[in-house]
Nucleic acid binder design. Sequence first.
RNA 1: AGGGAGUUAGCUCAGUUGGUAGAGCGCCACCCUUACAAGGUGGAUGUCGCAGGUUCGAAUCCUGUACUCCCUACCA
Length: 889
Amino acid sequence: MLSDRYNPNEVEDRIYSLWESNGHFKAEDLSRKPPFCIILPPPNVTGFLHMGHALDHTIQDLLIRWKRMSGFNALWLPGTDHAGIATQNIVERELKKEGVTRHELGREKFVEKIWEWKHQYGDRIVTQMRRLGDSCDWDRQTFTLDPGVSTAVRKVFVSLYEKGWIYRGKRLVNWSGPLETAISDLEVEHKQIKGTLYHIVYPLDDGSGSLVVATTRPETLLGDTAVCVHPDDDRYRHLIGKFVKLPLTNRLIPIIGDTYVDKEFGSGVVKITPAHDFNDYKIGTKHNLEFINILTKRAEINENGGPYKGLKVQEARKRVVEDLKNLNLLVKEEPHIHSVGHCSRSGAAVEPFLSEQWFVKTEQLSTPAKRVVESGTIRFEPESWTKVYLHWMNIIEDWCISRQLWWGHRIPAWYCDSCDHITVSETDPGACGKCGKKTIKQDEDVLDTWFSSALWPFSTMGWPNETETQKTFYPTTYLVTGHDIIFFWVARMIMMGLEFKRDVPFRTVYIHGLVRDSQGRKMSKSLGNSVDPVEMIEKFGADALRFNFLAHLYSGKDFKFSETRIEGYRNFMNKIWNATRFALGNLQDFQAPAEGLKALPIKKNLSTFDEWIVFKLAAVEKKVEDSLESEHFSEAAQALYSFIWHEFCDWYIELTKPILAGPKTEERAATQLVLAHVLNRVVRLLHPFCPFITEEIYQKLPMHGQACIIDQYPTVRNDREFLAFGSAQAAFEIDLIKEVLTSVRNIRGENRISPAQKINLRLGVVDEKVQKIPSANRSSLISLGRVDNLFIGEEGSLSKCAVTLVSVGESQVKVIIPLEGLVDFDEEIKRIAKQVEKLQKDISMLHNKLSNEKFVANADEDVVAADRILLEQSRQQLTSLQDALLRLK
RNA sequence: AGGGAGUUAGCUCAGUUGGUAGAGCGCCACCCUUACAAGGUGGAUGUCGCAGGUUCGAAUCCUGUACUCCCUACCA
């Protein structure tokens, strides 16, 4: 016997083990089935599952399970990412607690520590993924530092290097002081900062006066190598070519002219610090200025800063300002809001820093990557990301791929002490490729994490070896991810896939929004507003969490998280559970016919209810299929929700209760068969959305295969034999009965007639066409309407009666309930008055519309016809209500 | 500054070729009716941001405008 509440905690682990131990997640490298493949965006190996993952994974698992059940060779390829900066950062912080720095520990020992950390926490996230129900093919799980991936990384590096598309150069890069590494443009977050604009006097060398320069970063003047004015600026034009004496250092630097300067801003004079500002860098290059680096890797002033050496940037700023004040060279300080780049990992302000780095040239790689999106070979969903992607690819700059970290793929380049040659090689060379001497040293840096991620669609499939996996599954079908990593990851996978596999890595990029808190804010540690998905799973079950996402996922939009909504879907799961309980209780003596449906003379024994629910089921299956095909997942989820709750539970189960509770007739056997079939199909339809409860239920159903997860996904094409039992005429009949019952309940509710109080009901059948329907459904009307005596076709006296005219399609039925002795009539008068008012509004609106010649002439015929019928029906309703009102008063 | 998205019920959001506005939650009333009180039945609630335009007809198409959010780039 099933408990009257569904308890996910008892079910989920057991069901997951059942799937896994039976190998249901496994895809086949060689198969006759059509392939369907999604590669999982690899989460940080030492991370934990957050809501963003939960959303992302739920969508992928939906697709995978749906396709798996639809006969595809479905592969969801999982993996984890070494996440260079993030992981190194965490371990470094842990070490700090023990009072050790990574430098003290040394590279080898430190990397060992990280591996230990990885072994300790590396399983956490995959365990959490299992709790969500992710049906990944775990045998294929890959880590970005696995030997196979390393081979791929080196091969790609060497190949691009040999083509000249990877180069080494001294460039200004974004530098994170705390992490002591370069970071990419994309890892910089701009924040609005309240700063100060300092106006500093730069005396002219010839003593003829001075210039005033405005800056927010006075300490960088130590690295100034020019001041710049606009060549058309009358105030300063004559000074171009002269020199100023740089305060605090007394270095002479030239005054140059460049249109880059905005005459209107500040004093119209800009100090140029080519080694510490991106704009100044460009000017410095253009005007051939000296590049003076004043910082160390830890963002402290170096020996070029003279007396300020050793100070951190902020301290140096204070000291410089103080010293300028003392020299009377600081003429003004004003508050100034400007945006400053911050390292997205450490949170520290980013310092533009001149250093030797490795770059990927993106010019040639980006061209085909644009083309495949323009041509539609790769499709973005929602489509609006196409424009964003193309825009970004047009302004793409070379990609700085070296990081001054220890955790990651070490750059496969060796420098020769003897001849300065750089040897780049897939295998450790042992000797210089040019002079052959063994005096070589490997580059200390590692590659940007995204470099290995960019190869993920094929490095996980055994590339550079030729494998059956690649033949079968490359290109993959979908890539599902948030819009925050389109450029970090998606664009780079496209470039690398095209370059090394000569084909796109995936066909469709499904972009979903970010999960935000209930107030629409980003979930973040610092705000303390993160919600742990595992906690939600423990509280409401994985299925409720998943359904919550799927039912409210609208193309590309951000997702506002709401716990009460999950609770609502938990209730839905319970509803399904209890419907099953009811069904099983009524199917105890049910034997599935071994011969199938044909063997039974079932058709003639079916009730109208059966024909109706099958008809509705077919409609839902069609809707679900169309919605899933077009990636409107929430439409599919909502269609199922509404069918199960509001058709199957609210009506079908209620309507068939008398049959099922009745004698063992052939009609009852037929209804049992339909009940069993519908439930079975519903469970399978729901499976990709809420896999745990559906598998648990499926295993208990009278007709079931090995496992729901690998049973066939119902569509209108499958099982035509069963769906053919559906009948539109039955649907019409039941709709009419539903309407009649609803109006009876409305009259009862509005008049506050207690459910325990039986009533008499008269149905005036206005329309010949529907004459037989009420009498055919007499028992349903009596039981669900809580009716004492039911009279059909006899209008009789309307005195002291509640009356409603019910319309379904073009047919009408008059619902009459004598109120004498039950209630006083005040409530009924109110109820009718309310309806009269609404009807009058409708009628006048419809009347105006239909008397408009242009409307009648221009609108579609069926629109006009429908309005005519509606007007006529409304008028009849109004008449009978007014009539009833008279008889009440 | 440039690009993108949004503004519909108290809240979160649907609304796919223009044809009298929908769901879930919440709210109100009544019900422990033998699957489910995590339930049942009924009910209330919207100038569809604002202003124009096209049209017989606009939440839907066009123009303008206000506000919100995101992304990219930034003035030293």
